[in-house]
Design a protein around this nucleic acid. Structure first.
Lengths: 329, 329
DNA sequence: TGATATTCATGAAACGTTTCATGGAATATG
DNA sequence: CATATTCCATGAAACGTTTCATGAATATCA
């Protein structure tokens, strides 16, 4: 390791400044130090180009100022956005992020838990699809979008409210017959409440609805079958669709177009997530936008809060509807 | 920090197993240890649930098994993909990744260099837009897409070849009049070679071409002006466009459609990067695909190679054309 | 002025690991 | 059987920091 042959240490600084080791430490950490001493130490630090060694500090304090983020990947734009905002929130507090990509692999998740323990992270934020994950009880642990137990705080969007809002919006746009479409075995997780909110609102408004749900791994063609089976001479039985995620919504829209249906003229589509093209251009579809920044901020402040026991076990953050071209404006 | 009150150490294991500290260390590190001892130590490790403390090891060895990745953000899909593959390449080698998002801010970059030095990372991989970045010479340093000097290895796609390929493809599709469009002050960087390759191929093939380049921060409307100024009774002067990035290509396509031009019927468009919708669906536009996985792998193996001086100063990796619906198939 | 309180630099200990010199036991060699 | 050799567990030192008890110097008060 070409690591500068050997960087100066506090001892070097102390020698150069003619003070004790502990004095240097207090200067570096911004604690009370007599003016004259402080100047000498700072001069020596400048002169030697001293940079403190985090390894030494970590060892001594048994803290690393690092939070592990366990997440499937960074390819999915929703995850990418989450990583982004969590990093910002951590950095603001002078924390580092240790990223672990699970790729939805449970074995990898287990190994990560072990690895981050070896690295003595100060906390873990996890977005996992493994309902039987063994959550360590000796490290502050917070989940996103997945509820495990009342002793593990969960941060999520208001999925129920999002589903509700989607139904309201479709009604507002004049829809007479709607459907909810989703994929993924998320039955016990927070995002499944999107359906509940949607259904509740439809019932309350007396809006006829149908639900089409596929388990993880089911062939996408089943959606196509579902749609075609609800068509009669070129007309779809639904004039409004609420789809569980933007990604799925996009795929559904391709199918609709292939079936000769216009979006939003013939059928209006609302997705969920708030994905934008290239991360910064306009939203891909009309959608219920997740409050990603707020989720990130809440996750970080929760995992870092010293008294984890006083913290709510579930935090739901408000969502918004955004127009993206697949509904009437 | 609720860190398990105090996790067992090697000393605890040694005591439990009735052996010396160093013996435990050698078992943990898989070094030669007599069978009987090894068993006893492993039993004690199991029994105590011992996990080694990386801080102690880092301090002692002056290595952290961590590489810093300095990159603008993870929102841009190209960056997200890069982060993804670099993480995989590092993990394969039992390295961790310390992520630094610059948000294109030079001050932040400088602070990161300092921070990663404090954290004693074993190397740095950087994708930076700051041509005057002060590159440390005591930490292995590798750049992606930006060439600094022969002493700093740069890994990049074959941008020249990509531009060349784009021109060939447009010609192959029957284009008679083409243009290159780009944005960004990348004049001294690798991606600027996209233009060079494109121009060279056009010249060689005798294909008439034009170049429209905007510096960073210029208003996007100038592209619109450029296009409209090259229109006459609803016809564009070009029947083929090569655009510097997929993101820009997407925006240009929106403008073309607004101007009543069909893509690819009236004008064919090729982008650069290989961005896919939602990270995994089909490509957004026809494009020259960056070999992201290869770039990641090369960056990691280069930064970790012990003898950085024997390493090429520029590594260009081959690109591919992919159909995405904005050219004839 | 003398006694007491306050401030703050000092020196040493401790964090958990790796590594190195030491030497005892077992094995090989003559 | 004596000596040389190998093997490998041991104990201690070291990595760079923070923190704590100590005590000297200064400030406060009667």
């Amino acid at each position: 390791m070409a690591k500068g042959k050997s960087m100066p240490t506090m001892a070097d600084v102390a020698r150069e400044a003619g003070v004790a080791l502990g004095t240097v430490s207090r200067v570096v950490n911004g604690q009370q130090v007599g003016g004259e001493f402080k100047e000498k130490v700072e001069a020596a630090i400048q002169h030697l180009g001293y940079q403190y060694n985090a390894s030494g500090r970590n060892l001594r304090t048994d803290r690393t100022n690092t939070i592990a983020l366990i997440i499937p990947n960074t390819i999915n734009p929703y995850f990418a956005l989450l990583v982004h905002h969590i990093n910002i929130a951590l950095e603001k507090r002078n924390y580092r992020m240790l990223l672990c990509f699970t790729e939805y692999d449970r074995n990898r998740e287990m190994e990560f838990i072990q690895m981050v323990r070896q690295n003595r992270v100060d906390g873990i934020i996890a977005l996992t699809y493994n309902p039987s994950l063994n959550i360590p009880d000796d490290i502050p642990f917070v989940t996103i979008d997945r509820f495990f137990s009342v002793s593990v705080p969960c941060i999520a969007a208001d999925n129920f409210g999002g589903g509700w809002l989607a139904a309201k919006k479709l009604r507002e746009f004049g829809c007479k017959n709607v459907a909810f479409i989703r994929i993924g075995s998320t039955l016990t997780n927070e995002p499944s409440k999107r359906k509940d909110g949607f259904v509740s609102a439809c019932v309350e408004m007396g809006l006829p609805f149908e639900v089409m749900a596929l388990e993880d791994g089911a062939p996408f063609s089943q959606f196509e079958d579902f749609l075609t089976s609800h068509m009669e001479n070129g007309q779809l039985a639904f004039d409004g669709l609420f789809v569980g995620t933007d990604s799925l919504a996009w795929q559904i829209i391709q199918v609709l177009k292939r079936l000769g249906l216009g979006v939003p003229e013939d059928v209006q589509v609302i997705g969920f997530d708030g994905i934008r093209m290239f991360g910064d251009l306009s939203p891909v579809v009309s959608t219920i936008v997740q409050p990603v920044q707020e989720i990130a901020e809440a996750s970080v402040s929760t995992v870092l809060s010293k008294h984890l026991s006083n913290v709510p076990s579930l935090i739901c953050l408000p969502v918004q509807y955004t127009y993206g071209g697949t509904t009437r404006e």
